[in-house]
Write a protein that binds this DNA or RNA. Structure first.
Lengths: 135, 135
DNA sequence: TATTGTTATACTCTATAACTATA
DNA sequence: TATAGTTATAGAGTATAACAATA
């Protein structure tokens, strides 16, 4: 089982690495991560900093750059004047959608020509991976 | 098939992201990558720069830091005086081995308790992924 | 003259510390 | 006094441009 853990991990990381290297990126990795978080739901800078494992000042700058580029917008919180709620702009949503489409296309090209059996294996493996990583 | 491409890509990237975030790292990601390349075989700084998609001066600094920390050693090339051949020191090999062991352990913990059937699926999926990504 | 590698300088991302505004 | 966020300053990584050594 140690061999499986190693091989599976390597395979996943290789896919990930190549996707990140080979799909065009209008965004630096840390910026992309933040946009993905915000595409799930609006969040505060503090939340983002915790999720991305960076400090508050660092996230503050990252967010500032994304706001400047028109991908993210700030809004005041009605109940707490200290809080700034961040969310994607329409442009930000478009950029994320484009980037995701490129990444999915990279993967789709590599799955072309697989047999139905092979695809079934990969479907089951995907479900297993999701389940297992949720632990 | 588009759905499979998306889901499989996401699953792989999630595994990769969590491994990178959650295993202790004595090394920054770019340093780790370089040590892995050198663990395969000795290379020149120029080779490394090309493989890692960074410029020569950038790789020069990265290598310099790894040499200073005692993980990498420089050697002259007998046939071409311009060339500097880089390789891992014993300490560098130890560090890489430790880091890999931590990463494999992370994955192994998550595979614990899977049925033999599930593990067979993951084994087949791993082989498919390796094949498919080699394209 | 071309190639390998490094140094010079500037920009970005990160961090710790200090500051502002609100609770 | 504590919390959310930003600004100040400094330490790395990266880039382009310029330089040194060798082919």
């Amino acid at each position: 089982m140690a061999a499986l853990a190693h091989d599976l991990r390597m395979a996943c990381m290789r896919v990930s690495r190549r996707v990140r290297f080979e799909t065009t990126t209008q965004l630096a990795p840390h910026q992309f991560s933040v946009l993905v978080r915000l595409s799930e739901q609006p969040r505060t800078a503090g939340d983002l900093a915790g999720q991305e494992r960076v400090t508050a000042p660092s996230m503050s700058r990252t967010v500032g750059a994304l706001v400047e580029r028109g991908f993210v917008q700030r809004a005041a919180d009605a109940r707490d004047g200290r809080v700034v709620v961040l969310s994607l702009t329409t442009l930000g949503e478009q950029v994320i959608a484009q980037e995701r489409a490129q990444r999915d296309a990279w993967m789709a090209v590599r799955l072309e020509g697989l047999s139905e059996d092979d695809r079934a294996v990969l479907r089951r493996a995907t479900a297993l991976l999701e389940e297992v990583v949720a632990r």
